[in-house]
Design a protein around this nucleic acid. Structure first.
Lengths: 233, 233
DNA sequence: CAGAGCCGAAAAGTCAGACTTATATGTCAC
DNA sequence: GTGACATATAAGTCTGACTTTTCGGCTCTG
């Protein structure tokens, strides 16, 4: 999914990023570039590059004569896909999953409403195909196949909305759905009602019925939130 | 608002970032680190740090033997506040402003609904104060004072929602509102209906009426979208 | 002529060391 | 106590040499 080993500084980030987002260094903690470089056994140049990246994510702040101080959580760039991945891999995965699901519940219905007005014929076809794929994999413990089509479905909706901000949430939704399937205790087969709703959304979008697409999608996200309440109270 | 001169690499970014987001280098363009370093009259180390930051924003991709290639727009981290600022400062400001306003229209109503259920007494007080401030500055060409209270109002709503993803959009909303006031041709006095709606939202939140807060906020954002249609068709 | 494999050059990547600059903090005089 | 000043510290910058990857062309072969 991401790019694991893109240079030495990348490997440093793979350890340091998760550590910071996991709260291993409490906000206000001070790190020193030289010490970090020694600890990771890399040159200072490499370490500096890593720090710059963390800084651009607002995870840390580098100040002369002080060092690299960890910022409080509320200042992090929580929409950075990398940060999202790190946090989903860490201890507060459940909390993060809930935040993102609430975000979905706000965005996706609106996106679906817009998609109904703007989706191309090709996108409508893709949507139907995805929905059918979900139906096909909805029974018999075939969660992996179901997941693939589920992700694709929501990606198409977000892309078809014509709004770039919505479209870029495709990756986030993918992470959430994957996380739900793989790590939360999910039912062995997906909720039949949800499957039906997806099919109906595809129909509504094809028919250009924005209000209906929005309402149906709202039901999907409400269901997702409810499921989260039941399985991870 | 941001941190303008945080080192040499920051100053490089201040010119290179806007240039890329403005589409000055079409997707696929190849830059060379050494040339850039020469052009900006900085050392390679500094240039490399700048490139790393751009890379973490998914604006460019650095590959051996190839160079630094500009990524297509659809891959950018468009939620990065820095990227948002750069784009708002550039040529496609109107387009960007519209995207962000649509985003607001999806998020803020839901946030207001949640805020009604979770806002602390202090937050309710702040909200009322902001609304009153808006009323006080709603006449007599006092747009600046109005803007300050408008921004504060929406910040509080987003924060009070209790969702960190919503809360972090405070800066984005601030940019949008500021951009609207300063650069789009805004009416000399704000829409009285909008002012009233803000007061009513504050009341609804204080009363704990989520559905009403959500609906009223929806009206605010619909108004904002409509205003955008009228002023920047 | 096509495909596999080899080779060289180009550009990023890495490192080490010396130097500069800002700045937090302690010290001292008043 | 308060101000100015000195000092130590850690980030910031620059340079030059070296390493590593990999693209693109070349040749060799079938």
């Amino acid at each position: 999914m991401s790019t694991p080993g893109r240079g030495l500084h990348g490997r440093v980030l793979d350890t340091l990023g998760p550590a910071i987002t996991a709260g291993e260094y409490p906000p206000g903690s001070v790190l020193r570039t030289d010490e970090l470089a020694q600890h990771f056994e890399v040159s200072r140049s490499v370490m500096r590059e890593a720090v710059r990246v963390l800084e651009s994510m607002h995870l840390v702040e580098s100040r002369r004569r002080v060092g690299v101080t960890v910022r409080p959580k509320c200042e992090w760039n929580v929409y950075d896909p990398q940060v999202i991945r790190w946090r989903l891999a860490g201890a507060d995965r459940p909390h993060q999953l809930r935040s993102l699901t609430v975000l979905r519940s706000a965005i996706e219905p609106v996106a679906a409403g817009l998609a109904a007005k703007q989706a191309t014929a090709e996108q409508c076809a893709e949507l139907t195909e995805c929905a059918l794929g979900m139906v096909a994999h909805s029974r018999g413990h075939r969660l992996e196949g179901y997941l693939v089509h589920d992700i694709a479905f929501h990606r198409v909706i977000l892309a078809a909305s014509g709004n770039e901000m919505f479209a870029r949430l495709g990756d986030v939704v993918a992470e959430v759905l994957a996380g739900r399937t793989h790590h939360e205790v999910m039912f062995e087969d997906p909720d039949p009602a949800a499957v039906t709703l997806h099919v109906q959304v595809a129909e509504a979008v094809r028919a250009g019925d924005g209000a209906r697409a929005e309402e149906l999608t709202r039901q999907i996200t409400v269901g997702a939130l409810h499921e989260l309440d039941v399985l991870a109270p």
